[in-house]
Design a protein around this nucleic acid. Sequence first.
DNA 1: CATCAGTACTAGTCGGTCTAGTACTGCAAT
DNA 2: ATTGCAGTACTAGACCGACTAGTACTGATG
Lengths: 214, 214
Amino acid sequence: MNIDGETRSARKERDIIQAATATFISKGYDGTSMEEIATKAAVSKQTIYKHFTDKETLFGEVVRSTAAGANDIVESVTGLLSDTKFQQGGLAELGRLVVTTLLDDELVKLRRLIIANADRMPSLGRDWYEKGFERMLATMASCFRKLSAQGLMRAGDADLAASHFFGMLLWIPMNEAMFKGNGHPRARAELERHADASVEAFLALYGMKSGHAR
Amino acid sequence: MNIDGETRSARKERDIIQAATATFISKGYDGTSMEEIATKAAVSKQTIYKHFTDKETLFGEVVRSTAAGANDIVESVTGLLSDTKFQQGGLAELGRLVVTTLLDDELVKLRRLIIANADRMPSLGRDWYEKGFERMLATMASCFRKLSAQGLMRAGDADLAASHFFGMLLWIPMNEAMFKGNGHPRARAELERHADASVEAFLALYGMKSGHAR
DNA sequence: CATCAGTACTAGTCGGTCTAGTACTGCAAT
DNA sequence: ATTGCAGTACTAGACCGACTAGTACTGATG
């Protein structure tokens, strides 16, 4: 029956999603044909349509399954922003992590894809925004609130502070990644330098070091 | 021949670009057919192909002609950041202006379109980024440099400061606009409140008010 | 008479359906 | 356990209707 606890059906479905993910990412939504996905998944078109009613549905599943990976970062946030870690430069470490993770080539391409189809499939973009974007922001803000209460930060408006953290960190590199084509690896070291400088500025604003509040 | 100094040919070309702009913006690149553009421009397909070799070329022209409008904002930047204006809250005014201008519905859609096709037409995205994005950033940075030299700001790294300005201001609302579909006007008042709060934070970081430097 | 609208045409793509036949799977009877 | 069987999932490929970029031609018009 199943060697590793995975039915044939489930195996096929996974293959399809994998092939679809790769193809959508490299060729875009309209540029990808169901035929191509079928070939790449070593599956017949019919099988695809047995598992997914639609091209649109399939794409949605691709996005959702990739978005699930965002959980990892959220956990890192809470981890690195515990009071002890924070005082050991956890925020700088988090900054570097966020930059390198979110600017990963595949993730950027997926991001482009979702934005491109935000009109056609509104629920997708909304999901991505709420489950990924806002969730991370909220996690960050609640950490900031706690740290402020502990006297380790002075973030009057923690939500605003969280948005500033990401904005200062990501505005430039993210826009560059979105607009410039694929051919720009942008050295990791360079990214981390920008991250460090931005975190430093952020701490000058919201951190405790140089004295007086408000 | 020409009533108002515009040849028939030029008039047609303008009509085509106008129609193309509207259609591309509302239906995307693949979703727009040349036929539709021709109809909307009250022109035959043949005429389009007389003026533009390609669908891709036409799209490029659309983007470039729209990007030209970015000049206005750049001028506003230098205007509002003269030393006198700056001391009268010019930065806050600029913040509100930037937010409302850049989050204009049509501009957001165009932005989506360019991002969507950043792979297919790399030169387009690059142009948009360099002629629009980087240019505004550079203008801003040079203003910050001048203001710092005059003792009105303390922006050690003016380029970084400029990127922080835009990032703090736009990260949240821009991402929201990009990911959530069209149905999100996001009240202007709300946007301006966010802008004000962000500019205030920015000035707490880079401004002169509360004393000591670095 | 050059330019254009209108239209028909080429050549091709794609999403999705349908069909006929094959492989796999779980269950039951031996 | 082994075998037999029914039901289900799968493959391969033909097929349909709709649509598209781009070209070719004709007759009107300014």
